[in-house]
Design a protein around this nucleic acid. Sequence first.
DNA 1: CGGTTTTTTGATCCAGATCAAGCTCTGTGG
DNA 2: CCACAGAGCTTGATCTGGATCAAAAAACCG
Lengths: 220, 220
Amino acid sequence: MLSPIRAQSFEPTVHLDANLDAVLATPCACPRFARDEEIFGEGETADYVYQVVSGAVRTYRILRDGRRQIDEFHFAGDYFGLELGEAHRVTAEAMTDTTIRMIRRGALSDLAARRGDAARAILRLTAEGLQRSQDHVLMLGRRSACERVAGLLLDIAERTNAKAELDVPMSRQDMADYLGLTIETVSRTLTSLQDEGLIALPSVRHVVLQDRRALERMTA
Amino acid sequence: MLSPIRAQSFEPTVHLDANLDAVLATPCACPRFARDEEIFGEGETADYVYQVVSGAVRTYRILRDGRRQIDEFHFAGDYFGLELGEAHRVTAEAMTDTTIRMIRRGALSDLAARRGDAARAILRLTAEGLQRSQDHVLMLGRRSACERVAGLLLDIAERTNAKAELDVPMSRQDMADYLGLTIETVSRTLTSLQDEGLIALPSVRHVVLQDRRALERMTA
DNA sequence: CGGTTTTTTGATCCAGATCAAGCTCTGTGG
DNA sequence: CCACAGAGCTTGATCTGGATCAAAAAACCG
């Protein structure tokens, strides 16, 4: 969650991620998706890998009775939809108006077969996803509502390169479904963080981190 | 958790996992660890990748105040300790007397650089770990205590190739720390599953799945 | 504006945590 | 072979963080 994943690299001296970006900067479809529009659905054939150009995306799964768990939020630059098997295991939707780059999966595996650096970049993306998922497990398994909300805010700040003031692209429901809470609890937690002076909420989708140190202490 | 990960493969017709096993079947240190002995600690340099030969391993992280979250259980054949960065992000301990195969990380990356199939096998292992972690997130975020316990039992059964009767190598505390619950809740849930006739508990570390269908219905 | 959706706030409830005994295994030494 | 200590597990009583139910207040939007 808070680990500086994006600053790490398998081979510290080489920017493989950038490398993959460069290699793939060949003609690619870059469709736009409106807010709440589906990009792909759970169970669909995974013919493409996706990258957020601008905007933000949520990937989630739903249980039979409608309970939803958001797996991950994806921001500009992030890849998503990379699958091991033939089918997507999650549904992906745009959270705001979003531009997406689509890369044919076949093209990607060809590239990986030809170039070791591309193969390593794909491995790195997958391993970063695993690290993030493990942080998510720790969050859901052993943290209180307050710690979870604080952690999410810091994570968004880091991933969108925000300083103190941050744009929250997701609804309270999205936050709740990511954090394993209800909307009410998320809302109450945010107001109590505001009452304690740790954050300010100038508007619903705007948060100011007023005491980042204190927030970080909660999530350590 | 219940998805048949082990049956999937990136290239459906080739058994890459077996391939990696074969390639690595060269002279390797195979130390034994006693129950509860540490294999590696969080923060230590990740010089090796590990494979369970026999026995079972838990990997976990601990928060400042002692809360523990078990990340994953590893059974015979499973690889663990594969890291993106230089350091291990979790601690690994033997749950029972366990034999472990240690593979030099350098040897593995050399191999991956030389052989595309080895690189793909490593990617596959990482991606499987990611899938498992995502299932874990869904479990912790949106499932009840009862659903979690049922899910764990079915997962153990599958991964240890047990039919109805299964050997549970972990303590109640381990289950609790994997499931994001307390020992008391795990214990109570097991007894209530027994009372409902879904399982039997001939001894503490022995479970008989008496109505697997019903258990599966809980976790779907 | 008025209608709809989203968010906040309030009141109440409950699943699972916590606190507190007992109980059941082990193993150990006499 | 038994007494008994210690760890791990179960069970019981109570508490509580977050869920649920309900409604008011913002925000959004034609």
